[in-house]
Design a protein around this nucleic acid. Sequence first.
DNA 1: CTGTAATTTATCATATAATGATAATTATGA
DNA 2: TCATAATTATCATTATATGATAAATTACAG
Lengths: 257, 257
Amino acid sequence: MSGFQRYKKILDLFSEDRSSWTVSEISNELKTPSSTIYRIVREMVIAEFLESAAGSYFRLGPAFIKYNRTINLSDPLVRAGQPFLEKLANENPIVSINVLARLYGNKVMCVADYKSPFFKNNTSYQKGKLMPLMYGATSRAIIMQITGRRLDELINLENFYSEDEKINFLEGLKKDRKKGYCFTQGQVDKGLTGFAVSISNKKLGIEASLSSIFNSSDFLLEHKPLIYANLTSYGLLVEKYINEIFNDIQNYHNKLN
Amino acid sequence: MSGFQRYKKILDLFSEDRSSWTVSEISNELKTPSSTIYRIVREMVIAEFLESAAGSYFRLGPAFIKYNRTINLSDPLVRAGQPFLEKLANENPIVSINVLARLYGNKVMCVADYKSPFFKNNTSYQKGKLMPLMYGATSRAIIMQITGRRLDELINLENFYSEDEKINFLEGLKKDRKKGYCFTQGQVDKGLTGFAVSISNKKLGIEASLSSIFNSSDFLLEHKPLIYANLTSYGLLVEKYINEIFNDIQNYHNKLN
DNA sequence: CTGTAATTTATCATATAATGATAATTATGA
DNA sequence: TCATAATTATCATTATATGATAAATTACAG
């Protein structure tokens, strides 16, 4: 164990299911003497990456809340897109969850969402949760904008049942790219139907999507044109704002130099 | 620079105003050779605490979103209280922002909030933002539950204009403790009025508050009884649920051993 | 309140890792 | 394509982490 790994290995023990650990539990789990763990934990407590809780347990600290807030306030995708999610929900013909998601490594992460007031179900795309790249409209609208070697790399990380399935997937992707949007039913969550368009900004390295998710039971084919029109127009709007934010950032940094 | 500080110093450069840095900018700012910074940044990129953006800039990475989500899903205060914020908003006589906040070090941090659909203003208590301990009902309901040496320590960290002001503050706190709730107007945000009750759980080390914040222009004295009744009853409910969660956690850990 | 066990901190010789100057390689953009 | 900037690799030197142990502090049952 060396460098940042030393700290990360400890942080990674904390999960939704197991959100508090004692030093001796960590020590056992990582097979590392507790004097060492105590030292490292203390460092992270001082830095607020951990905090001590009752009964000599430790849990993740407030630093994560703080940095997460910084990301939210400064991420061009969130800044540009967040304000439109509610409007999009209001203009959709049926109740919906509306999601901004982006590529992180080889996974997709939702970074902002808005749910219509009377939408009852929950989608798996929750803010901060990593989702598979190959299923659902939200993810598909992201991967469909990627081509060439980059796409190959990502595709090769996935386990397809067969070569045929892989070719099939790529064919479908190509068609969606032509159509300009993705439409899937029940791929990620049973009973939910998703629509998505791509959002991208090369200069900022943003590979993302804007999607609306509906109850399959509410959804009728006649809704499709309006949903598509809404997503497309808001998608373009978000990209326009991302670009403006990029210019702001550039100007800011130019001023500094 | 050593230990965790090495990493934290870099992370702390990133802020809402300056959310992307190049290696050479970091190198200048920290007066550290860029070969060293490159090595450290690379480590953090691998760990997803940083990610590279366009134009050789780096920004905070997805790890923070992930860990923040873990905190949200597992924090007993959030888990117990989040579901009630919307209900509280609906039962209040006028539109409101409803906030769960807790003590972190010597600051107060909002960990969950719900805003009535038609509430226009914004409060300074945003999720993840650190707020002063001495102003506003939200903070006051937290500090008023602290006594003895702990209170002295926290009070001594604050800069009061005079000894008189300090004594005054402590007197007011005592009165609020007796009343069972706090009520302030315009202490943090002009034009906003706040009500708050304490939330605590000794076993879990939770020192927190539940508060409702209103537009001062909407607020009438006749609203007070209902607001107070709502806050008190939901406050007790939240504490009850926190306790249940504590028992769950205990059982879980007992099973593991 | 007291004694005891558990938790946390301190110490220190040794092993290990970080540093930074420099060179080599790899993107990037005109 | 070339030229410049960004990134990675190398390595001797310096600084830090490690972990066994002891000491101190805290928690808590009686």
